[in-house]
Nucleic acid binder design. Structure first.
Lengths: 172, 172
DNA sequence: GTCTATATTCAGATAGAC
DNA sequence: GTCTATCTGAATATAGAC
């Protein structure tokens, strides 16, 4: 049977949920604790400061990213389709962690920014190796970023992915 | 001779600079006032609350957007190239306003979110009318969003725009 | 229109009981 | 490991002098 989610993980989940849903200003220790169903004291036992909370989140994101890249490499539908599909918010834990980290990165946090840069580089390497075409790999990564940005800003268009597939098919 | 920038405008400029450079959490009334070279009391004379500051910013953004769309329609290099070029952070006032508004939109602010949706719709209409190709127009808009997202998250790649141009040239 | 001073509320963090 | 109580400083906002 699967283990109960630890308090530590539930706190990180809540932090990410608040970052994604309402932004960093709203992700206060009070709000995170309430959302995680723990007291502020309980939260601060696991993370001694807000900074530590961010660090814990980034660390967990790096682990999730390792698993994602592994799945991308051996995806049955191929890395490109796998990458595009997962750029449209799938609501997965990894997606949430990614969006949450980008919120923190926008605040000039070096840890979050470096982690995101590393993850993007890993994705690009897989795309580039599979396609053998730097320009196309980069363009596909940009399209993924666009899909992702639109989702996270509430600007997503329902047909976006279909349209992208159609345009990519036209390429020689 | 050009008029002096009003205090009101300098306050909005400072608010945007802080939102873009350090995020909403850092864009406190204190910080905005200091950056604008005015006292907090002086700031609050022009904007009675933080909310009013956001509203003022969004209102100004809409005006800037009207001018941008007009330029896009009649750009000598064509709307597509104009759109892609200006999706890479050009450091213009309009860019800054756009990025600042997206920071606020991420906090679930209806005003900022609606304004951005309206502006994106206007851009799409110009692309679609020019190209006569919904899928391609949408894909180009996504690429623009990707360029823009990368810039604003500090993840921009220097050759990105060159690579995109190269791929677009391959399309029939 | 802009300032200083101040009130109020809230976020981050500590101490210590259980 | 989790709680309550509490301290400190910061953020938003008001009042009133200039």
């Amino acid at each position: 049977m699967p283990e109960e989610r630890s308090t530590r993980d539930r706190v990180l989940d809540a932090f990410e949920r608040l970052l994604v849903g309402a932004g960093s200003r709203a992700a206060t220790l009070d709000a995170v604790a309430a959302d995680a169903g723990v007291s502020k004291g309980g939260l601060l036992y696991h993370f001694h400061s807000r900074e530590a909370l961010v660090e814990g989140m980034v660390e967990r994101l790096r682990e999730q990213a390792r698993a994602d890249v592994a799945k991308m490499v051996s995806a049955p539908q191929g890395p490109v389709e796998f990458y595009l599909e997962t750029s449209v918010d799938s609501g997965s834990d990894f997606d949430r962690a990614l969006i949450a980290a980008s919120r923190i990165a926008q605040e000039n946090d070096a840890g979050a920014r470096t982690a995101l840069a590393d993850i993007r580089e890993a994705w690009f390497d897989v795309l580039n190796e599979h396609l053998g075409d730097i320009a196309l790999a980069r363009t596909i990564q940009l399209i993924g970023d666009g899909l992702y940005f639109d989702d996270t800003t509430g600007l997503a268009h329902p047909d976006a992915l279909t349209h992208v597939r159609e345009v990519l098919k036209r390429l020689p």
